[in-house]
Write a protein that binds this DNA or RNA. Structure first.
Lengths: 453, 453
DNA sequence: ATGTGGGCAAACAGCCGACAA
DNA sequence: TTGTCGGCTGTTTGCCCACAT
């Protein structure tokens, strides 16, 4: 019975340091956080979308305009902290941003700004709970491959083979489960302790659980990987895991709730109007004074990734040509927490909100999706979300849309590409309009290395 | 077993019309909402306090100033809707305010603006739950007087006397309880159905429940009371209640949670800075354009009643003299949901935040409390929260603080009071500074009737 | 390979009066 | 008057396997 009690290590107030692997696993394979210190592009418009999704209220029309707030702000990302809601375990990130002046925007890219985003953990599994899993009648049926991959091995000389598993959640609470291999045919089960977890987290059939086999001193591990990279490559990852597996291993446990019909959350703190105004005013004030501001990014609340690495933005907006009729692919998360690509066709390029946010790249691409189940996929995407295909357009564009960009003259063409190769709609005609006085763009600096993209 | 199931009448989205009596009972005896259509004074500073209390974050110093936003706005209250959080049953109110121009501020008071605030229901009881009440081992022990007052009478000819009670909560969900009178000595108990309620509302020992015996058509009842006031006075209230008791009665059920150590709620939607900015910017924008804005008032989240009837404000600020050393009484809510008065002495009169909110009446009075358990009571209060005593000050004031008010000359003195009778600190010297161009104040209009206060 | 259901024992929920504060 | 407890059912929880998919 003591086994069934989770040892709640109540650490109210500020979370110390949330496990990054677990956070990313819960956030999903498509979510990546820009590196601390890197430059990012912040979209008030996208931020607004997130608030609208959280409050279930569309942005009202009588919200004042902030004419000095451009549709995107180039910022330095000073701080990123990962959080999880104490009640629901919903993951979110807090970011501290500082708008940059023209000088800083122009500086060449740093290595961290070009690095690959953090990946999903390797030794993990994610299972969508069945009715049996969440019922009080029984325990949790562990898929065989999953158990073999992420759980410590059982002693099969015993009958039945069993062990006690201890897993930690995002709040560093400990959950104990009896892991047993029994039944006819044999299968892995979590019995004692499981229902306590289900009721504490209020899980229902359709929600998912994630188990990760992690190394406690993963930072030390990374350190060793860095210095002994060659040894690692020779001996393989398993050797390194083996080094730590005996003492310092740990099982992590996260949840991901099904996309239930959102409960109306009128927040009872601040009206949604005030929230929208607050977000805009905070950004406008920060932009005017070049001071820091703080935002919350809630990856599962809305499909609006509104803080984008600057390198990704620059590549997509300036180094990719798109036109109406062009085919593209875009990544989506599957039900099983992996990714798949959906195909579509660009049907238009225009401002999402020409009145409030003219000349914004936010969701400037109107698209149609190939598959008939496309009702749930957005009809508008941003340039950096899609991978245009280099094949011919599906059908010829109604009009060419090929305008000569007002690129600073006298500069060498980019990567063997001529100016004429860029296609722009009128609204996208001058992408530099928000960087007054900006001279040679950063990606024209000698240190800029396009091959790193 | 069907008895134990609450009939959840899920009405997602907008609440229709919450029961006002129940809302007020849950909000507590000190909470009153201004009348729709009346003029009120809105304090951004107090609103800010509520956001700070909700987010557990003090207002940061680098939030921009809104120099055009006065510390108090005279507004018309266009709409008030009562709400209850779907998760926690926490009560809150949504108000739509519209800042008024000088002309409208000056208009004479309407009857609704001078009416008494809504009272607590009469036929109700509130009990703080014991360990036995919340334990799964037993039911709910109903205090005898409470049961006799608010529950329908039992048939004592039966052995044991018992009946089924049906009560409705703020969300209009139905809860059924078996009410039985048994034991040695005899007592009233709620048995079947009680534990379902306790676990559904997640009640713990220390929380309170409120039962109200209400009339469904209370508006009709008020209507009759109004027209047949004399008959009512002759026949007595019981006659009127009897008229409706047979068919249209209903039992209401609310909860009030103990003041547990507040769970940190970083909201995960918007940073507390942005919320503060949002509140200020929304008010400033509304003030500049004389347009409506919406606020949420959360009476139990913080002791900051930041929307005050204008009449109450005017009376306290202009028609009450206070000085350092003066004794006063102030109402507080007791644990048992009734009120008691605490005594204190005014120790100073000054701005709470001279930098950000100069010349504000919000919590401008520094006080000391008589009782040693005063640690939990605020050291600063607003003028309209206290009842100054007309007795002599406890100790003579260090300096007179008696300044001649710059009252418009040529007007008759107020209610036989001479100008000299008003005592003001320098910061409160000119209470009209926020009403530029204001002539004779509303309380000088012939229709203003001070006896209604 | 894994979801569901019957059988069964142990644990818990929940109704009762006794007692004491 | 009312909070808590021991006694005593009836229901639920939860571990086991069989069986079906």
């Amino acid at each position: 019975s003591a086994m069934a009690q989770p040892q709640q290590q109540q650490q109210e107030g500020e979370q110390r340091c949330l496990n990054s692997e677990l956070w990313h696993a819960c956030a999903g394979p498509l979510v990546s956080l820009p590196a601390v210190g890197s430059r990012v592009v912040y979209f008030p418009q996208g931020h607004s979308e997130q608030v609208a999704a959280s409050t279930n209220k569309e942005v009202d029309s009588h919200i004042p305009n902030y004419p000095n707030l451009p549709p995107q702000l180039i910022c330095q990302l000073h701080n990123v902290t990962m959080h999880a809601d104490a009640e629901t375990d919903e993951v979110y990130a807090q970011m501290t941003l500082q708008p940059l002046g023209p000088q800083e925007q122009k500086e060449p890219f740093l290595p961290i700004e070009l690095g690959a985003p953090s990946k999903q953990p390797t030794n993990y599994f994610c299972k969508t709970l069945t009715a049996s899993d969440t019922s009080t009648h029984g325990g949790f049926s562990v898929p065989r491959r999953a158990a073999e991959k992420v759980f410590p091995p059982l002693d099969f000389s015993q009958q039945p083979p069993a062990q006690e598993l201890i897993a930690r959640d995002l709040h560093d609470n400990e959950w104990k489960f009896r892991h047993i291999f029994r039944g006819q045919p044999k299968r892995h089960l979590l019995t004692t302790g499981w229902s306590v977890f289900v009721s504490a987290k209020r899980l229902v059939a359709g929600d998912s659980v994630i188990f990760i086999w992690s190394l406690v001193f993963s930072f030390l591990c990374s350190y060793l990987f860095f210095f002994f990279g060659k040894i690692h490559r020779i001996l393989g990852t398993d050797y390194f895991i083996h080094l730590f597996r005996n003492d310092n291993n740990q099982l992590l446990l996260g949840i991901r709730r099904a996309n239930r019909p959102q409960t109306v959350m009128p927040s009872s703190v601040l009206s949604s109007d005030s929230m929208h105004i607050g977000l805009l005013a905070a950004a406008a004030h920060a932009a005017a004074t070049n001071s820091r501001f703080t935002i919350f990014y809630n990856p599962r609340a809305s499909p609006s990734e509104f803080v984008i690495p600057m390198a990704k933005y620059v590549k997509a907006v300036y180094h990719t040509r798109v036109s109406v009729g062009m085919r593209f692919r875009m990544l989506f998360e599957t039900e099983e927490s992996s990714v798949r690509r959906y195909m579509g066709t660009i049907t238009g390029i225009s401002d999402l909100d020409p009145v409030r946010w003219p000349n914004s790249h936010w969701r400037s691409v109107k698209v149609g999706w190939d598959e008939s189940t496309a009702g749930e996929r957005q009809p508008r995407v941003s340039l950096w979300e899609i991978e245009p295909l280099t094949t011919f357009p599906m059908y010829p564009t109604a009009f060419p849309l090929r305008l000569k960009r007002p690129w600073p003259s006298g500069l060498p063409p980019l990567y063997g590409m001529k100016d004429d190769d860029f296609a722009r709609t009128p609204s996208l005609m001058n992408p530099m309009m928000n960087f007054p006085g900006l001279g040679a763009p950063p990606w024209l600096q000698p240190s800029f290395n396009p091959s790193m993209f």
